[in-house]
Every structure is written in C-alpha cells, then in structure tokens.
Design a protein around this nucleic acid. Structure first.
Lengths: 196, 196
DNA sequence: TTGATTTCTTGATTTATATCAAGAGTCGTT
DNA sequence: AACGACTCTTGATATAAATCAAGAAATCAA
C-alpha cells in the first residue's frame, strides 16, 4: 500500500465515522493527520500521562489496558479503521486512565489535540458531526454494559465472535478473554465447545 | 416546592450538566421544558416505540429496563437531577431499546425532540456544550464497563453504594441488584455482610 | 386494621466461572 | 534445528454467584 492509498483509507474511515462531510472537507481533516509506524509492543500512551493525540489504526492492532494489583484488564483492542484516544484525558486534560500498546507492527495516523481542536474553526458543522460520532460510541457502550447485565460468559463470547471473527486469529486470545470479562481458561473452554 | 422553585431546580441542573451557559441562555432552554407529574408505575417510554422526548427528573425515580424471555434487566435508575432519554431513538429515530417506568410518584420536566433540536439555532455554543455533556456520559459508561471487567459482585455493590447511598432506601433493592448485574439473593447476602 | 401483594431474606443446592498447576503447542530468535 | 519465551489447553479443585424454595417482613389498598 503506498501513501496515497493509505491516505485514501483514512479519508474513507473519516467519511464512515463522521458522515455529512464533503470530500473537500474530509481532505482538510485528513491533512492534519500524520503517518507513523510502531513496532510490536510499543506504547502509544501510558496511564497517568496526558493524552495529547487521537489515533487512527491503518493496519495492525492496539490494545487498551490497565494493570491492577493482581491482574491486567484489557478494555478494548482496536484494529484497522478504528479511531482511538483516552477521551477523558484528551478532552478534559485529566491523567490518562489507560495504557495503549501495539500488539503487532502497526501503522497509524495520529493528530495532536491542538490540530484536532482546530476542526471546529475550519468546519462549521464539526461540532454537530463530532457529537453524532460520540453518540454512536455511547450507544455501542450501552450495549456492552447490557451484555454484562444480561449475558453469560458463553453468550458474550459467541456474540462478540459473530461481530469480530477476524480478531480471533490475529491477536493473543487472552486479551479477548479479558475484554469480555472472563479468564483465559474459561475462554479456552468455550472455544473448545465452538470447535467441536 | 412551588413552580418557581421547581423551575430553579431545572435551571440549576442545566447549569451543572451543560456548563458554559449564561443564566439568560439557561432560561431560554428551561423555557422549552414542560412540567408533568406521573403516578407510580406509569410508563414514560415503551420499548420499540419512538422516543420523542428527553426527560428531567425533578423528584421521584424512573427505572430504565427491558424484559427478556426469562428475566427482566434494569439498565439504570434515574433519580432527581438526571436527564434521561433513549439516546439511539431520540437522536437517530430507531425504535426505543428500553422501557422507562416510574418507581414512585414522580415529577418531571420534559421536552420534545423538535424543541430540543432548536437549541442549536437558539444558542451558538449549543453543539459544543451538548458534545461535552455526552462525552461525560461516555466516560461514565466506560467506568461502568470496567467495573464488570475488573470487579466482583461484592466490589460493584460497595463501589455503587458509596456513590448512591440515598438510592438504597428509596426503591426496591432488586432493581439495584439487576443494574449491578447480580440476582436479588446475591445482593441481599452482600447487604447482610455490610450491616453486620 | 386487616388482608393481599410485593419485596426481602435465608438455607440448601446447583451451576458457572476462577484459580492453580502442569504440560503442550506456537512463535521468534539465533 | 534448537532454545527460550510466550500462549493455549486441560484437569482438578475452589469459589462466586445463580437457582430453587419457603417463610418473614414491609408495603399497599380497602
């Protein structure tokens, strides 16, 4: 993939997630993102630091997690096409709540908060568009909370599998287990049922 | 509480949740809310219907829940000072995902979607303000997901209790149990530990 | 106040999931 | 190819939480 194609991928995802923008406007947004590659295992963000960037995953995977006394909790894994940041830190300058680490060699586009904030001056509809984006994120999270109120570990597994098949042969399964709220052993046993 | 004091309470909560507004502007927002009382057990919203309103709880409690084949799941209980709606339905005109029912006689202010949508024309900063409000909601939900990934039922109980003491002697405890993702029996046993 | 209904508690039991421990597979590196 | 480091699986066991069932307590309505 050459840089032009990478750029096209970014623009496509901006269109998908921040609808209602003309292609000229999308171009102006994309202009402010910078391209970078990260080796497997590198951190994009450390907990308690300030999160000054929003990231876009072009290829690879980024894990969002936190370390507790006794265990490590993976909050989410973002693959290609995802925008990600620690929202509380990025928007309200609080210390970051999560670590972000690449699980494989990963290509990202990133944008600094100061450039991101300029969108609202460049584009009159920006606040409206961003608002809708966050609403969709909120609705998705509501579903995730619901899955913990209403579903068993096994139901969460199959539900998630249907939506994210590709993830299951790309990253260590223990991280999927954690983001679904179960141990690797439980995950493995459910998986065995699935395969038999 | 007379109507003037009720109105003042609404304005105060608007200020709390949608900061950055002058008092004249808050007044113009509050003007578009209407006051209504609901008897215990009345529905503000039925699942699968269209949610055309946002609600503000002045006094009382509203339960957000859904009925499954085998059980009922309470997603949240909103007490005084809460704004509530089915966001997906209110904003994107999808069928409502939740029921909303009062748990006691309840006073609310409500606003129709068409009036709510007019805020952005009345107030130049509205989109920005609303965006920040939703971001805070999103961050709160992230914490809630995390509580299911990292905490036991007992930890969720005590964590929630610290934040919401008043709820525990105002509404049936079974609903708190459900929103914390446990059965009433488990809830009761944890509660016993707390009291002894 | 009384009876009816709902809610909460408690005990016994079952089930789901976590923990612990060991071994097997996989992957990356040299 | 071989080593070491992860990662996954599997079994045995422990623990957390759900289920089932009954009764007690609280609440509501007449």
């Amino acid at each position: 993939m050459n840089l032009l194609e990478k750029r096209a991928t970014l623009e496509y995802s901006i269109k998908q997630n921040f609808g209602l923008l003309g292609s000229e406007e999308i171009g102006r947004i994309a202009d402010l993102f910078k391209y970078k590659t990260h080796k497997k295992g590198e951190f994009l963000l450390n907990k308690d630091k300030s999160c000054q960037h929003m990231y876009f995953v072009l290829s690879g995977y980024v894990r969002i997690f936190v370390e507790l006394e006794t265990k490590e909790v993976t909050q989410w894994v973002s693959g290609k096409g995802y925008f990600l940041t620690d929202l509380a830190s990025f928007q309200f300058n609080t210390p970051a709540r999560w670590n972000m680490q690449t699980l494989v060699d990963t290509e990202i586009f990133y944008i600094h908060k100061s450039d991101y904030d300029s969108f609202k001056f460049i584009l009159s509809q920006w606040n409206e568009i961003e608002k809708q984006f966050i609403m969709h994120c909120f609705i998705t999270l509501e579903e995730r909370v619901f899955s913990h109120l209403a579903m068993t570990a096994e139901e969460r597994y199959f539900n998630f599998f249907e939506q994210n098949k590709e993830l299951f042969n790309q990253i260590p399964l223990q991280y999927i287990a954690s983001m679904l709220g179960m141990t690797p052993e439980t995950f493995s046993r459910i998986r065995k049922k699935q395969l038999c």
